[in-house]
Design a protein around this nucleic acid. Sequence first.
DNA 1: GGATCAGCGA
DNA 2: ACGTCGCTGATCCC
Length: 539
Amino acid sequence: RDEAALLAALARRPMAGFDLKPLYRVLAAAGQSQASTRDAREEKGGRPGPPEPLPVPAGDVKLAAYLLDPVRNRYHLVDLARQFLGVEVEEGPADRPADPACRTPALLGRDAALCARLRPAIEAEIAARGLERVYREIELPLVPVLAAMEVAGIAVDREQLERLGRQFAARSEELAQRIYELAGETFNINSTQQLGQVLFERLKLPVVKKTKTGYSTDAEVLEALAAEHPIAELVLEYRSLAKLRGTYVEGLAEHIGPDGRIHTTFQQTVAATGRLSSTQPNLQNIPIRDEPGRSLRRAFVAAPGHRLVAADYSQIELRVLAHYSGDRALHEAFAHGQDVHARTASEIFGVPLEQVTPEQRRVAKAVNFGLAYGQTDFGLARALRIGRAEAKRFMERYFERYPGVKRYMEETIRRARQTGEVTTLFGRRRPIPEIRHRVPHIRQNAERVAINTPIQGSAADIMKLAMIRVHGALLREGLSARIVLQVHDELIVEAPEDEVPRVAALLRREMEGAYRLDVPLVVEVKAGVNWYEMEEMNG
DNA sequence: GGATCAGCGA
DNA sequence: ACGTCGCTGATCCC
């Protein structure tokens, strides 16, 4: 009653504050329940009008502080007060939202006052550092979008999840028994310590790699040991099933709400590059590469009468690289809609595009990927399991054929060394003080960060803009479809069946048009009743 | 509670 | 030293 009126009043007026997304989440949830009662009332009276969109926040000092220094591990009001106002205070409700004890009128008022004093100070710094656009045009407008996504959540088929859990458990049990037989004793396979004793002391297998504290038993090691002893392969499969059961089946089930949906939290001030992250649970790392992990995606479903529509940017990071570097060959590949990995294979192996073999393409793909991360010949050699000299030849060939890319990378490092930071397309900044470090491996690590951040960060800028556009367009066009997930280069929308064609077209239009690069942005759209089986909707 | 190891995604 | 950015679970030790 009073609360509903208060929320309605808040929802009408742009607000400034500290970490507004949780409040927006409350407002979005209130708006949603209001809309559903209104729809029920108007059931006989024709179509309901579009819902009132929440206003873009007028300011958020936490977001501003993140843009000023995206590498910090926290953005507490007390730290900002010290840094920008020179005042020393104890933590209040803004910094301890989970602690009801500090939610006193005095401290609530104090935090509000701190916030009000901080805003002009921090926003002046935002303007001075050229961060006005990324702040006003990206991060602030994104707040209501993320809040709406979190409130929407994604529907999960608990039965399906549990069915998979039972399958994983049965196979897991089978593997454990065979592992104990081969080991000659039972032990905790999940314990790296105990597993190390079994493999390297009891079975006397060769030690290929060590960790700080003992034997390494990671997948790379076990794959090498597979040639020596049959236990290794069994442990590998056991491990992957243990991962699926613990992290995904049980971990996800705990987060299914009374509405049958999982409502993740998108973190907007965590990733140093400007990406979002997802927690409680993380829905940005649901398995896809291999079965049976991939089958978990069958448990992510559309509500009855709905479909999931997934739209992903094709090769967005390489397109950003093409844009930044101006490299002719890379431009040409994208301008002509070529398969870039095949094109790269054709360049480095010196064969016509049509004669590229799958193996050559696989190698080229690894080179293309590694590039954006500043991978070395050593790393490429390990990834492809080839010799270092051969890897070095591939990389040299690559840079011969894409000289613009080489120039761009050298220039990026040079500028980073000069300024101590790198920036993205939208002017997002990341300081990299280590780029001048005298210890080579620290400096080289900084150089990789300098190469990767503008690429990953610009792709993040583009995706965030696209999310704002898609959310706005869905509301404007009076569609009921809603964005439910973002996975870095992919958006998942839940749409009523009859809206699917319009939503697919809208996603393509708004995502491809989010930003104008020197090469086209291309979006691939798929739809289905769950996140596993999706049919392409291109054309 | 925190460090370490491991493994999932883009 | 060797690939960027994240998050979570299990174990082990404090």
